[in-house]
Amino acid sequence: MKSLHKYGWIAWTSARSNMAYLGEVVARTLFLVLILYIFLQLWRVTYSETQAQQLGGFTLPQMLWYLCVTESLAISAPRIAQDVDQDVRTGALTVQLVRPISYPMYRLWSSMGERGVRFGFNFAVSAVLALFFVGTIPMSIGGCLLFLLVLPIAFILDFLVMFLIGLGAFWLEDTSGLVLIYSRLLWLLGGLMIPLELFPESWQGILHNLPFALVIYAPARLFVHPSISDTLALLMRQGVALLMLTLCVQWVYGLAIQRIHSNGG
């Protein structure tokens, strides 16, 4: 209980610290508004050209709301890998290691606080935009609660992959290439711009089971098409990914921590 209180406070402090980056938050949000507006126009043309009421099971309003969630998720991603990379390279990691806390947990909760603020702000603005252009879609409190259940797990999965990449700094000269590859894979294969239903059928089986979909596509789809059975299936897949990635982080972190050299000072 004390641990939860401790790490909860780290998330809270991180959230408040991120309020200070108001300029960056506003810039990201303006970018989000622009992106959403462009996608709205593209999908409008697509729907009108195909004369379809639904594409992949999404109506136009549902598609825009889906994009609101996916874009907010992608844009709210904290610079976890870069921060861990810097901690390793500059030796700032030592400041965290001389405290009675776990470094991975410190980074996790700190990123949760940061992402919570950013996602909340981004989603609020994109929701206003969606309401203005396409109105509401059928939603319920239960559906929102299901979404809120899977959302933090999506954040944690994303964190674990980014943290693993950051730990690469113990072995690699530069991890920015890996960050770039991961973020592009997440965007392309995670359903950022197009729901997975619109990919070729032969791809769908694979894409649904990749961790990228569990971070972006699945929570966004659940927001638009809430269902208890889908939520349970998603939680199951997220749980398996969470377990595997946690074990992987634990193993790599164990190896990495033995590689700490004396980086001066």
């Binding site: 401790k6 406070w9 780290i10 408040r16 200070a20 400041v95 405290r99 009675p100 000072g265």
Partner: peptide, 23 residues
Amino acid sequence: FGQRSQLWYHLPPRDTLELLARI
């Protein structure tokens, strides 16, 4: 560490001490 800070850069020292009390 003289060259590394444990204080939260965008928050007053008060907030870091509050956090350290929990840690």
